[in-house]
Design a protein around this nucleic acid. Structure first.
Length: 444
RNA sequence: UCCACAGUAGCUCAAUGGCAGAGCAAUCGGCUGUUAACCGAUGGGUUCCUGGUUCGAGUCCAGGCUGUGGAGCCA
């Protein structure tokens, strides 16, 4: 008895194999049963023919309900008519052992609404689309980490439970830490700066938490973020590195997941173009382009949405409009200091803008990375912390980093789920993570 | 938090203020090549909640709850 995985089925043509898994769908033709059978690695058609099985086994085959668990044995044969993933091969069954006859399964092969599917997320992950997305997610994580590990970056974990980070705790989840307040981390960035000075090029990767009351297709309360931080890196070094990194991730998915991208009906020609170098425009130029576009736009509603004054941050319509000007991801750098974080290095001779850079994904997927050169001057970082009213004592350790061998450094954060949504071409972020935590949902 | 829309069978949806309906799923029967199979039969309802208008409310009105889409905030 050779137990095989469906993804390898082509290697076993003509051989007797055993599959262990679940019934995805079944077509009853009387003395012939077509069972779409999945094992987690793919879907294969199993054909149960009355004359080729024991009467007991054939009777069970004819009663199998959707998602019943079964162990089947039969001979692999090539047949162009056979559907499945990869498809083209089917198994002519000789034996069938029922593990459990499933109750009436709520998710049928027909259409369902969003709420119903999210309520049944624990079952929905078995469906083909979700299966494809989560497999690609796993590969994206793997490709990100491999590229970093292969290019001299070291994984250094940062804490999830953190002390008070300052006066603005409205976007932090507060928890009780033995009678003291503590908060779930919304970034590993500050700890990364300490680790950068210890190891040179580092990154952290883990879940982060934002208690923002955001209700959009691009927000989760719990999402996974990967944040590299590099000593002696300039803004230009950062962009060079990011475009290599992103290209590697996208090209790895293309190489490994053609079948999954096809299930998702993803236009892969758009992904083929994601190869370094990417376009780079300054914030100033982006604003100019948006103003020009707004002036040329006929539709009054669209015109209104594209209104933009220098000094503001981009809204979702702005990001989409800029991204549409390019068929690749585009870097926008030197944002106004006022709309960015306190630790970002001002541009020399022009302190109203800072050495920051966001990477906007094409096709309206918006910002997928945000980063900057950090302030390395101890006096300046001290002043910034004082100016925005952060408690000095809470940041004492962070300020010390500038006293002991301060160096120019830079880093960025990339939101995993937004990256998955973009690469998979999904309309909503809720399908990019196994169990989404959203404004109105924490079940299942 | 704001704006818009929705809530009817397990699911997806119909129903001019006048008998609560279909497809899928389930159950039973038929079929040796199905691709979300097909054909026949059967069972299945607190029409989101509370109150109101009316001879009569799934339908109209008020309030609430839940969800969806968008905005803001952000990765």
């Amino acid at each position: 008895m050779t137990v095989i995985q469906i993804k390898d089925i082509a290697q076993y043509e003509g051989q007797e194999v055993t599959l262990r898994g679940w019934v995805y769908n079944r077509t009853d033709k009387g003395r012939l049963q077509f069972i779409q059978f999945r094992d987690g690695t793919g879907i294969a058609q199993c054909v149960a023919f009355k004359k080729e099985m024991s009467p007991e086994a054939f009777e069970i085959a004819g009663k199998l309900t959707q998602e019943s668990s079964v162990i089947v044995t039969g001979t692999v044969r090539k047949d162009e008519r056979a559907p499945g993933i990869p498809g083209g091969y089917e198994v002519g069954l000789s034996k069938l052992e029922l593990v459990q006859m499933a109750d009436e399964y709520p998710i049928t092969p027909k259409d369902h609404g969003v709420e119903f599917l999210m309520d049944n997320r624990h079952l929905w992950v078995r469906s083909t689309r979700q299966w494809a997305i989560l497999r690609i997610r796993a590969t994206i994580i793997n490709a990100m980490r491999n590229w970093l590990d292969d290019n001299g970056y070291m994984l250094v974990d940062t804490p999830i439970l953190t002390p008070s980070a300052g006066e603005d705790t409205t976007t932090l989840f507060k928890i009780d830490y033995f009678g003291e307040p503590a908060f779930l981390a919304q970034t590993g960035q500050l700890y990364n700066e300490a680790n950068m000075a210890a190891f040179g090029k580092v990154y952290c990767f883990g879940p982060t938490f934002r208690a923002e009351k955001s209700k959009t297709r691009r927000h989760l309360m719990e999402f996974w973020m990967l944040e590299p931080e590099m000593a002696f890196f300039s803004l230009e070094d950062l962009m060079d590195m990011e475009e290599q990194f992103i290209s590697h991730v996208v090209q790895t998915v293309l190489a490994k997941h053609r079948a999954e991208l096809e299930i998702l009906e993803r236009d892969t020609s758009k992904l083929e173009k994601v190869v370094a170098p990417f376009a780079r425009i300054s914030y100033d130029e982006a604003v100019e382009r948006l103003q020009k576009l707004a002036a040329e736009t006929e539709d009054p509603e669209q015109k209104e949405l594209l209104q933009m004054e220098w000094g503001g941050d981009f809204g979702s319509p702005h990001e989409t409009a800029i991204a549409e000007m390019f068929d690749q991801p585009v870097f926008v750098y030197n944002y106004p200091s006022a709309v960015k974080a306190f630790y970002m290095q001002p541009v020399e001779g022009r302190p109203e803008v800072c050495r920051s850079v966001d990477l906007l994904a094409p096709e309206g997927y918006g910002e997928i990375t945000g980063g900057s050169e950090r302030i390395s001057d101890p006096a300046l970082i001290d002043e910034r912390i004082a100016r925005i009213g952060l408690p000095r004592e809470a940041y004492a350790w962070y300020l010390q980093l500038r006293q002991y061998g301060s160096v120019p450094h830079a880093g960025f954060g990339i939101g995993l789920e937004r990256t998955v949504a973009w690469i998979c071409g999904l309309p909503h972020i809720r399908e990019t993570i196994p169990y989404a935590r959203m404004l109105n949902r924490k079940y299942p």
